[in-house]
């Protein structure tokens, strides 16, 4: 198939980049959430929470903006996916709500039951958000039943099958690993030592999931490999991905925490790039009728809207990157609690 960088493809890439930004950034704060209950001491839990304190909200904006961009650029996909996955998305929204208020509410009151309740809510919500996002990706790989009017015709339970559950668990493992590395970056002393141990465990967990997921994708959904057969050069992505993951324990061992974090971020970016290459030019594959798939042409907005949105992105994105980088720079270094902390 021919590849040319037209407007629709550009928007496919831009939305991909937004979601990659989301996965890298919110990925580590969801990861912190999945590890939260493993930390028992209240002070240490506060350190965990405050490690993501100034940034979690901004990280979530990547998802919200990704949703808005999807709505603007590929409204048919936005409409089909959100109405089709209704129950799953409603559940996801509830988890996002609970997680946001849990972070904000937890430290406002000293009572033990109060804090434990919100700790629990924060952690469960983080797990479920990661899981549901993985399940959504799994469904896009495996394809969902779509009718001729572009409407989803399946059921909620069809979406939960062994393959999509596996992708869900893989996503949890990925974010756990990513979160543990971020934790190492932001903490010191005894807590940091424990987090280092978890980095090793979660890497093993992730690698097992990743290998299983890759094998099952290649066996059951070989269409994901088509572009890689056509353009073997793309295999470099898979290679960089493996090298990035293998590099993490090495960097942790030498105490180069920042480099470990960037390795992990690179691994996430490669994973999503592999996914994007696999599905291109479809956005939602129709299974069993592939000809009904929603792709970047039959589900897109008008050329004018795509152009206007590109101008908006061109003006806005440099600012977004500037704020994001400045905020992470200002809040660099280890967590220190003060009277404005959570």
């Amino acid at each position: 198939m021919e590849f040319n960088l037209d407007l629709n493809t550009t928007w496919f890439i831009l939305i991909g980049l937004l979601l990659t930004g989301y996965a890298i950034l919110d990925g580590f704060d969801l990861g912190i959430g999945t590890l939260h209950l493993l930390v028992k001491d209240d002070l240490e839990r506060r350190i965990m929470l405050n490690s993501i304190g100034p940034v979690w909200d901004g990280n979530e904006v990547w998802l919200v903006t990704g949703g808005g961009a999807l709505f603007a650029a590929f409204p048919e996909v936005y409409a089909t996916v959100f109405s089709g996955f209704y129950n799953a998305f409603i559940l996801l929204l509830f988890m996002l709500i609970f997680r946001a208020v849990a972070i904000e509410f937890r430290s406002k009151k000293p009572m033990r039951w109060w804090r434990q309740t919100w700790d629990f809510a924060f952690s469960i919500a983080s797990f479920l958000i990661a899981f549901l996002m993985g399940v959504a990706l799994g469904n896009i790989i495996s394809g969902i039943p779509i009718g001729p009017d572009k409407e989803f015709t399946g059921t909620f339970l069809q979406m939960l099958n062994p393959y999509t559950i596996l992708i869900g668990i893989t996503t949890i493992a990925l974010f756990m690993m990513h979160g543990a590395i971020y934790g190492v970056l932001k903490t010191e002393g005894e807590l940091q030592n424990r987090l280092k141990g978890w980095v090793n465990n979660t890497i093993i967990f992730f690698v097992i999931c990743y290998v299983t997921a890759t094998m099952s994708t290649l066996i059951y959904f070989p269409h994901m490999a088509d572009h890689f057969k056509e353009f073997p050069l793309l295999f470099i992505l898979a290679l960089i991905n493996m090298l990035a993951i293998a590099n993490i324990p090495r960097e942790i061992h030498f105490g180069r925490e920042m480099r470990a974090f960037f390795s992990s971020a690179a691994a996430i970016a490669c994973l999503l790039a592999l996914f994007a290459v696999g599905i291109f030019p479809n956005l939602v594959l129709s299974n069993p009728n592939p000809e009904m798939s929603l792709n970047i042409y039959n589900s897109a907005s008008s050329t004018r809207t795509l152009t206007v949105m590109l101008i908006i992105a061109g003006i806005g994105v440099p600012f977004v990157l500037a704020y994001t980088i400045s905020i992470y720079w200002i809040f660099r270094g280890k967590v220190k609690l003060n009277n404005m902390s959570y």
């Binding site: 949703g67 808005g68 961009a69 709505f71 603007a72 650029a73 206007v308 949105m309 908006i312």
Partner: peptide
Amino acid sequence: GSALAAEG
């Protein structure tokens, strides 16, 4: 959708 994306 464009207005929502611009808001983001």
